[in-house]
């Protein structure tokens, strides 16, 4: 049986690793050299966050699982990331808009998590706040450039927004697992993040001449282990070596 704190920590870790993995797929293929470096930077931040969070999750669980055991030896139903982060990388508009939507949520989230009663989570969050501030700035500037750039870039950005918007709702979900931790002062209440996220999104969309979609039906399931078709393919890349050579040290 997973304890709430283990599940909660795993959710944060899986979000970071899966999105970091998606960003890392760009390395060597970005639209310009500067962006190769920037996307790799953000990927490294997220993979670093994931490593700290997995190590903490392993300690909470107390069964001796390492960061690599958690990353490389779980199948889809045991992954707890939101669906947003497992969407394939798409074009640059999709990648950068997703990064912005995610970072605009995680930056204020980590600010609050830095005051968590779980000291390790608080320390990881305090370190991650600065990283996410950069992601918001960098991705936000690109959203503005693309939205207020050429006709093509604006069209691509609108298309990406239509694809991504139904996946934003899951960031704000709270289930019984998390409610107990929120009440205990360990987890962050995403309801408190909503106004900050709205303000950031509205500001950047305003500059980007991008109309905010209506909050209609939202996709859900990743945090409970109900994933899209895409996660399995990501895992088949991610886990290839550990699955092919069980128990080896690298």
């Amino acid at each position: 049986m997973e304890t709430p704190l283990f599940t909660y920590t795993l959710r944060l870790a899986d979000n970071a690793l899966v999105l970091g993995h998606r960003l890392s797929e760009w390395c060597g293929h970005a639209p310009m050299l500067e962006e190769d470096l920037a996307l790799a930077n953000m990927a490294l931040d997220l993979i670093g966050q994931a490593r700290n969070l997995y190590t903490h999750a392993g300690a909470i669980e107390g069964k001796g699982r390492s960061e690599d055991d958690l990353a490389y030896l779980r199948d889809c139903p045991d992954w707890r990331n939101i669906l947003l982060v497992e969407r394939p990388r798409g074009d640059f508009a999709f990648t950068i808009l997703r990064q912005f939507l995610y970072a605009a949520f995680m930056h204020p989230y980590f600010e609050r998590l830095a005051a968590s009663k779980d000291e390790t989570l608080a320390a990881i969050a305090a370190k991650s706040v600065k990283e996410m501030a950069y992601h918001v700035r960098h991705a936000g500037e690109w959203v503005i450039r693309l939205g207020d750039g050429t006709e093509e870039s604006a069209a691509r950005l609108r298309e990406a927004l239509e694809d991504l918007w139904p996946f934003t709702g899951e960031m704000f979900e709270v289930d019984a697992v998390e409610q107990a931790l929120i009440d205990a002062g360990i987890a962050v209440d995403p309801a408190a993040i909503r106004p900050v996220w709205n303000a950031t999104v509205d500001h950047v969309f305003g500059e980007a001449l991008l109309a905010r979609p209506r909050d209609g039906w939202m996709q859900t399931g990743g945090r409970r282990g109900e994933h899209s078709e895409h996660l399995g393919h990501l895992l088949s890349d991610l886990q290839f070596m550990q699955r092919t050579y069980p128990g080896a040290t690298w």
Binding site: H29, A30, P31, M32, E35, F92, L146, G149, T150, S153
Partner: peptide, 16 residues
């Protein structure tokens, strides 16, 4: 391929 697929991004940055 990376250069061609990134052309619209570079153009957008310039236009902006």
């Amino acid at each position: 391929k990376a250069h061609a697929e990134g052309a619209w991004v570079r153009e957008a940055a310039l236009a902006h």
